[in-house]
Each structure stands twice: as C-alpha cells, then as structure tokens.
Amino acid sequence: MLSLFFDAVLALALPLLAWRVLTTRDLYRAVILFIAFGLLVALSWARLDAPDIALAEAAIGAGLTGALFLNTVGGLVGRKRSPSRESDESREVAERREAIQSSPGEPVDEVMRPWWVRLALTVPILALGLALGWAVVSFPEPAIDLAQQASDNLEASGVDHGVTAVLLNFRSYDTLLEIGVLLLAVVAVWSLDLGRVRGGQAALSKGLPVLHGLVRLLTPIMIIVGGYLLWAGAKQPGGAFQAGAVLGALGVLLVLSGLVRPPLSDGSGLRIGLAVGFAVFLGIGTAVMLATGELLNYPPASTYGLIIIIELFLTVSIALTLAALFVTAPPRKEQGSKEHSEEKGEES
C-alpha cells in the first residue's frame, strides 16, 4: 500500500517537475530542476525493476547532460566577463549582446509565442494527451513475448545477464550504430569549432583546495567502480555503458577541477581513443562473418571472449567521448591558438 502511494506520488511528480523546468524564470534553476528530474526518472526506473538503465540515467541523463546544460548556460551568461571573439565581431553584435546580458543572474528568456498561439495549441496537445493516455491504459496483452524468447536464448548468448545479452548479442547491431552516433556527435561538435570550455573551469580550479582533495579522493574510487561495473555486466546489472559513464564523469570532474588539462586539441591519440571502441566493434563484427556467415554472428566457442573484448574497448571510447563532448576541443591546433589567444600557454 505504501509503495503504491510512493509510485503514485513519483508518477505525478515527474510531469509537474518537467513543467517547472520549462517555466522557471531563471535558467540556472531550470537546469538544476532538470537534474532533479533526471534523478527522479532514474528512481522510477529503479522502481520498475530496471537497475541497468536507472544507473545509466543517473550518470548520463542527469549527471553528464546536466553538466552540459550548466556549462552552456554558464557560457551564455558568463561571456560578458570573458569575451573571446570580440575582435572578429561587429560592434553591433557586441552591443546587442550587451543589452541581452544586462542581468547576468537571469539569462534572457521569456521570449514566447503570443498568447493566442499558446491557447490554440492547448487544444490539439490536450487531444494528443488524451489519445495517448487512452492508448497506454488500454494496452492489450501482446501476442509476442520477447522477454520469454530472450530468456530462452540466454544460454546461447555467451553472458548471463539479459540486458547485456540483448545489447551485445541479440540486438548488437543497434548497439554498434549507437556507438557510431557517439562518434558522429563528437565530429559534429568539433566541426562547429567552438574552442575550449572556459569560465567555469577556471573558476573551479582556483582557490578550491577542498574540491581538489575531493576529486583526488574520488578518482581511484571511480576507477574501481567503473572497472567493477564493466566486469559485473556479464552477470548482473552493469556493463560498458555504465562503466563508461562513470569514467566519463570522472574525466569531466578532473577537467573541471583543473587537475587534468583538457585533451590535446589535435591529438591523434585522442582521436584513436575516441574511435577505437567503434572500430573494434565493427572490425570484430565483420571478421566473424568469415567464420559464421553473418555480420555480428559470433562463433559459439568464442562468444564470451569477444563480447568482453568489445566491452573493454567500448568502455574506453564511451568514457572519452562523454568527456570530449563536455570539453569541446577544437579540431585544429593552429585554429585554436589563433582564435583563442588566451589559451596559447595551455596549448603547447
């Protein structure tokens, strides 16, 4: 009874919190609420017997995504104090920006569609909500039970944990493409040539010895947790994504605290690290074609070993990619040092 009440409150809280995220005037507060939203989603997944994704949501969905948002909001608000592109931009633009940033604590917002648009929108959106609500309440008993099929084939999958079996064997093609998405995102972000994260990073690295100590303490713990998650994934909740997320978060912390310099701007080492997970996955997936005749069809004798190798490299690439998405280093050295002269020192 109590747990039913808890579920009801949690389920009710989520849409309300989403509403608050979108209506809170202050953008910083909105992002904090967004992180809370992510954690509540993770909690509801834990309630729904889905520890794997609850873990991933807490680390990636709430943690890293929240950090990305905070960073960007900081970038938009804090730029007044650390202008970097002032030289190559017209005065007009600078003035406009000045006007927009008149109240740094409260980033510009409140640009909304006119009231009649909002009113007219409520009708179709309410209708959609009712239709979807009716649809989910009236879900029939499905004719196909994939859960049963997955559990029947678990033995042949090479691992003992259902989600890992789906991710790296039954439906590994999705996972392969998904790692491709991560790589693609890094390339797409780099192609925008944003320069390196400033502002927040500098502020945190100066005069916060407590943070340094904390990060130093956390580093070995997070590495151990990451390694454990990777190892445990074959039998119980965990795996490459959760391990990669924890290590990626560690990377972000290390960069934020200034203990580690952001990755080299044009380091081929970094590029190899980012690509190695995808390359190994694709390479093994293609190579097994020679033995079994199908893409990603592992030979039964070596399934477990191949999955572990793939997961190991995936963990490295996922961690590096998540950290790299946060740091947004420029793709070329000359470019970076030319446009962001204040970073010249760091670069060399």
């Binding site: 994939l146 099929q149 997955a150 039954f170 439906r171 199908e294 893409l295 592992y298």
Partner: peptide, 12 residues
C-alpha cells in the same frame, strides 16, 4: 538477412 544470426522478432 539475420544480423548476428538471430531470427526476428528477437533479433534484427
């Protein structure tokens, strides 16, 4: 073509 050698609907 059965990717990974798994039949639909479990496989892709």
């Amino acid at each position: 073509y059965q990717l990974g050698g798994w039949e639909a609907p479990l496989g892709i």
